[in-house]
Amino acid sequence: MKITSTNTAKPTTIIWNGKEVITGIYKTPTKAPIFLGTSDVKGDEVTDRKHHGGEFKACYLFSEDHYEYWKNLYPNLDWHWGMFGENLTVSRLNEKEIHVGNIYKLGDALIQITEPREPCFKLGAKFGNQNILKQFIKHSFPGTYIRVLKEGHVKTGDTLELVEKAKNSITTSQFFDLLYDKEKNKAHIESIQTNDAIRKSKRDKLKAFLK
């Protein structure tokens, strides 16, 4: 897995349900390296701190490999890296292979895979169609957020080098399915209960389905 593009955003105001909303989803490629901090990417817009940024969502990664699929669905958009609001566009990132809790060296930073992206209305606003939310969930390749264990700069061309593989974990794709499938895989829920790469509140919410 290699970084294809580093992306950041300036605050952009959109109108949603008649109200002004500031968002950082309109990311564009940067020419310089970006700095991964423990709560966010330096110089990047993170307005909604309830749902973005913080320890478990310090940075968002999305796969370059999925762009062709979405370009075919939305051919009239002005396509560039960062279209999904990702800070890092990564080649060969496969959600069906990476495991929650895996630790990687990336540039000067040390990162850990945490949770998949859950789409919201801002993605629909970006694409001009709220139907993309259902399409995104059905496609089941959501990208992943990361925790930054060691801060540092990363740049285009840097590779993700596996340092430690998570034990008794599930893939990012399986975690995404847990969030949206009506019939939850209870074995998968049980397997993540001690995985501290996942927020306790998220683990507790899923644990309720074991009763």
Results as ranks from 00 to 15, higher is better:
residue 112 Q to F: 05
residue 102 N to D: 15
residue 159 T to R: 13
residue 179 L to I: 15
residue 179 L to M: 14
residue 169 S to N: 04
residue 76 N to A: 13
residue 7 N to L: 13
residue 89 T to S: 15
residue 52 H to T: 07
residue 208 A to K: 15
residue 83 M to V: 11
residue 172 T to G: 04
residue 205 K to D: 11
residue 53 G to F: 04
residue 144 T to P: 00
residue 67 Y to S: 09
residue 47 T to V: 15
residue 189 I to W: 03
residue 21 V to W: 02
residue 46 V to L: 06
residue 146 I to H: 03
residue 28 T to E: 14
residue 27 K to G: 03
residue 106 L to H: 04
residue 38 T to D: 09
residue 158 D to E: 11
residue 34 I to P: 05
residue 131 N to C: 05
residue 195 N to S: 07
residue 210 L to I: 11
residue 157 G to W: 05
residue 57 K to Q: 14
residue 112 Q to K: 07
residue 175 F to N: 02
residue 14 I to H: 00
residue 188 H to N: 15
residue 38 T to H: 12
residue 131 N to W: 05
residue 63 S to K: 04
residue 59 C to L: 04
residue 167 K to R: 12
residue 27 K to C: 05
residue 110 L to I: 15
residue 199 R to G: 12
residue 147 R to V: 06
residue 16 W to R: 14
residue 146 I to L: 08
residue 70 W to Y: 10
residue 108 D to M: 12
residue 118 E to W: 08
residue 12 T to P: 01
residue 58 A to T: 00
residue 72 N to F: 09
residue 143 G to R: 02
residue 83 M to N: 11
residue 121 F to G: 03
residue 208 A to H: 11
residue 84 F to T: 02
residue 172 T to W: 00
residue 52 H to D: 06
residue 99 H to W: 09
residue 22 I to P: 03
residue 167 K to P: 06
residue 163 V to R: 07
residue 54 G to R: 04
residue 59 C to R: 03
residue 2 K to G: 05
residue 120 C to Q: 05
residue 58 A to H: 05
residue 25 I to Y: 00
residue 94 N to Q: 10
residue 167 K to I: 13
residue 156 T to F: 08
residue 13 T to Y: 01
residue 19 K to M: 00
residue 55 E to C: 05
